[in-house]
């Protein structure tokens, strides 16, 4: 187990170090997410009456778009400098590379969301500190990172990688986005949740579990070429 985790944390640590140096991922995603919110505010004309219904949707559109931006960088950085080959040449399993990259992506996305959530809370006037909301953000972000790491590694090897990643990512991630929006509506607004927050969280958890098994396996296949 320790043999497996050592390279995982090394890769994550390396990504964090690079991010601290270049600040390519976190800052860019954050700025982008704020822009999404501003544009949605104009497009939907959010008023105090509609904010309960609209805010969760806007929140998750912003998180998802910012997430795609972050995950597209995850492998572009490796590819452009040829360092992905260097990683693949290390005597470690593909699984540990996958989990290392995934963990770093998860951290970056969580940082972005942790900064954005209070801003959203102020802009749309809701309480950001509910355990349900934080729980669903963590679960859904795990799902984003799980699928995103795999698709990013696939998209980076195709022509027109910028287009390929969102096209691959969004259809597959639909259940997580639906679940996250519904749960957040329950947490932020006063509306009754017919299905129940617990079952939505379960659904996202099932998604995470299924893809935490499938994606590392698929990553191994993709990286073996």
């Amino acid at each position: 187990m320790k043999e497996f985790l050592r390279p995982v944390f090394l890769v994550t640590w390396k990504d964090i170090l690079l991010e601290l140096r270049s600040r390519e991922v976190v800052i860019a995603s954050m700025v982008f997410a704020v822009m999404v919110v501003v544009i949605f505010n104009f497009a939907l004309n959010v008023t105090p009456e509609t904010v309960d219904i609209l805010a969760p949707g806007i929140l998750w559109v912003a998180f998802a778009f910012a997430g795609v931006l972050a995950m597209s960088r995850a492998f572009v950085i490796e590819k452009d400098q040829g360092s992905l080959e260097g990683l693949l040449l290390c005597p470690v399993s593909r699984d540990s590379l996958y989990f290392g990259k995934m963990l770093a992506l998860f951290l970056f996305m969580t940082v972005v969301e942790a900064v954005l959530l209070p801003i959203f809370a102020v802009l749309f006037d809701f309480s950001a500190f509910s355990f349900t909301l934080i729980g669903v953000i963590l679960l859904a972000t795990l799902g984003f990172a799980t699928v995103g790491t795999l698709f990013s590694s696939i998209a980076v090897n195709t022509r027109s990688r910028e287009i390929m990643l969102p096209v691959l990512f969004f259809p597959v991630i639909t259940p997580v986005i639906i679940g996250a929006v519904e749960t957040s509506t329950g947490a932020i607004g006063s509306s009754v949740n017919v299905i129940g927050v617990g079952r939505w969280l379960q659904l996202i958890a099932v998604f995470d579990a299924v893809f935490l098994v499938l994606c590392p396996w698929a990553f191994g296949l993709v990286m073996e070429e």
Partner: peptide, 25 residues
């Protein structure tokens, strides 16, 4: 392996690169 590309992280120093890959090995 020495390939066409240097396979190094541009934003890390020589020492950091070598340390990272050494630890990975």
């Amino acid at each position: 392996v020495v390939a066409h590309q240097p396979m190094l992280y541009q934003d890390m120093t020589c020492q950091e690169n070598l340390t990272f890959f050494g630890r990975m090995h």
